[in-house]
C-alpha cells in the first residue's frame, strides 16, 4: 500500500520558477496542488524541497482553498488568505481570514491549525478576530 511519503505531489500553474540550489519552486497563476485526497487552489505557492523532496508549502490567495475529506469521508473545506502545509505530518496552518467548514462545524479565527491526519483543529483568536465555532446538527 502507498504510504504518505510515497504520495506524489502534482502541481499545475500558469508560471513556475525553480531555484535548484535553494530547492525552492515558486508557482503562480491558477495554481492547483493535488496530493492524495488533498486538493489546494491558490494564486501563488512556494514549495520548499531542500533535499529535492517537498517538505513545506506556502500558499497565498484570495482566498486559498484546501479540500480534503475527513477520515469518515465527509467533506472538509479550509479557506484563508495565507496557508502553510507541512507534507510529512499533514498539518495545515491557516492565517488571515481563516475558516474551516466540516460536516459538523464551521469555525473561524485569527489562526487555525488543522491536523488533517488526526482531524484535530486548533483555533487562535485575537482582539480583532475572536474565535467562532458553530456546531452544526449532525446530518441524519
Amino acid at each position: 500500500a502507498q504510504t504518505l511519503e510515497d504520495l506524489p505531489v502534482r502541481i499545475s500553474a500558469d508560471r513556475a520558477e525553480m531555484d535548484d540550489r535553494r530547492g525552492v519552486g515558486t508557482y503562480s497563476g491558477n495554481v492547483e496542488v493535488i496530493r492524495g485526497n488533498l486538493t489546494l487552489h491558490a494564486d501563488r505557492i512556494v514549495i520548499h524541497a531542500p533535499e529535492r523532496r517537498p517538505v513545506r508549502m506556502e500558499a497565498e490567495g484570495k482566498p486559498v482553498r484546501a479540500e480534503s475529506p475527513d477520515p469518515a469521508g465527509q467533506p472538509r473545506v479550509a479557506t484563508a488568505n495565507r496557508m502553510e502545509y507541512t507534507f510529512d505530518d499533514q498539518i495545515l496552518v491557516l492565517r488571515d481570514d481563516a475558516r474551516v467548514q466540516t460536516a459538523t462545524e464551521d469555525a473561524t479565527g485569527e489562526r487555525i491549525t488543522y491536523d488533517l491526519a488526526q482531524d484535530i483543529i486548533g483555533i487562535e483568536g485575537s482582539e480583532a478576530r475572536r474565535v467562532h465555532i458553530t456546531i452544526l446538527p449532525r446530518p441524519e
Binding site: I11, D14, R21, G25, R53
Partner: peptide
Amino acid sequence: AADLIELRSEVETVYAPENP
C-alpha cells in the same frame, strides 16, 4: 550557471519520491 529555471506557461510538475 545559477541553476535557475523559469517556465512561462502551462506548467505541470510532479514531485514523486525518488525510490518509493
